[in-house]
Simulated scan of single mutants.
Amino acid sequence: MSLQPTLAVVEATRFRGHDPAYHDYVQLLVGNVIAAANEDGWNVRRLAADAGTDRLLEATADVDAVVIVGGEDIHPSFYGAETGYANESRHLPEADAAQIALVHRALERRLPLLGICRGLQIVNVALGGTLVQDLGQECDHVNRGVPIPQVLTTHTVLPEDGSRVAELLGSGPVPVRSAHHQAVDALGAGLVVTARSHDGHVEAIEHAEAPVLAVQWHPEDVAAPAGQVSALLTALAPQATRVPALALA
């Protein structure tokens, strides 16, 4: 019997036959998360949310922590908006619903959870928040019109003093790698903004009471600062279930 804690790494889907280049790059990023978690002593269980809510909740019933990784845009119906916006990706509503249900259960159980890119947006939407649907053609959070491996761009974020992300990565400015055209608009219930980018967009959120932390960037990218994804994974350590992720003054 293994004494290793079990970490569920949950992606939206394992199949993107319509876009092999994007699929391959997502798999590289997910693989980097898994490799870092294995090095840190986790028994990793890789899951795809498009299998449906019931199957995802069943497959994560006994895990010790969860990472929700990047992927496609969340369907706007989950945050009260419409389709037809600029740079819209394909949508996977079944995966959205399953990941949202997983966030709700993690909060109920005080299960440590880390959201990455889409994962941050899932956390926010799950708690009633909304999204800026497109940051515009001139935003420097994603490179447009380039091959998929070149879409990530480098910028800085400034963590809030006293936040979990500042504890893990320093008070900043922190260099990060990102590739997102959406961002938090209205903040979900119980969430606190704990880092912003140089242009003011939300880049990290934490729950005020539960051990939930989410970042809008990709700490697992090959060009991210060394050790950044491992540092964030420490927020999922088993003791996190007994200590709030953020202590409010």
Score class of each variant (00 low, 15 high):
residue 193 V to L: 05
residue 103 V to A: 03
residue 149 P to D: 13
residue 60 T to I: 01
residue 8 A to P: 01
residue 116 I to K: 05
residue 142 V to D: 08
residue 112 P to W: 03
residue 37 A to K: 07
residue 127 L to H: 03
residue 194 T to S: 13
residue 225 P to V: 05
residue 153 T to D: 09
residue 246 L to Q: 09
residue 143 N to G: 11
residue 99 Q to S: 05
residue 207 H to E: 10
residue 36 A to T: 10
residue 94 E to W: 08
residue 68 I to S: 01
residue 203 E to M: 11
residue 72 E to S: 06
residue 247 A to T: 15
residue 116 I to T: 01
residue 212 V to L: 10
residue 80 G to D: 11
residue 187 L to T: 02
residue 170 G to C: 11
residue 77 S to C: 12
residue 227 G to A: 13
residue 48 A to W: 02
residue 148 I to N: 00
residue 233 L to I: 11
residue 102 L to Q: 01
residue 211 P to G: 10
residue 245 A to F: 06
residue 160 E to F: 11
residue 177 R to T: 09
residue 116 I to E: 01
residue 211 P to E: 08
residue 93 P to K: 11
residue 100 I to Y: 00
residue 138 E to R: 15
residue 92 L to V: 09
residue 109 R to P: 08
residue 219 P to R: 07
residue 9 V to W: 02
residue 191 L to D: 01
residue 176 V to T: 06
residue 56 L to G: 01
residue 140 D to S: 15
residue 67 V to P: 00
residue 7 L to A: 00
residue 43 N to K: 12
residue 191 L to F: 06
residue 123 V to Q: 01
residue 218 H to L: 12
residue 213 L to I: 07
residue 196 R to V: 13
residue 149 P to Y: 09
residue 43 N to Q: 15
residue 237 A to T: 10
residue 142 V to P: 05
residue 179 A to W: 05
residue 230 S to R: 15
residue 175 P to G: 07
residue 41 G to F: 13
residue 193 V to M: 07
residue 219 P to Q: 09
residue 206 E to G: 03
residue 247 A to G: 13
residue 99 Q to E: 09
residue 239 Q to H: 14
residue 56 L to A: 08
residue 6 T to H: 08
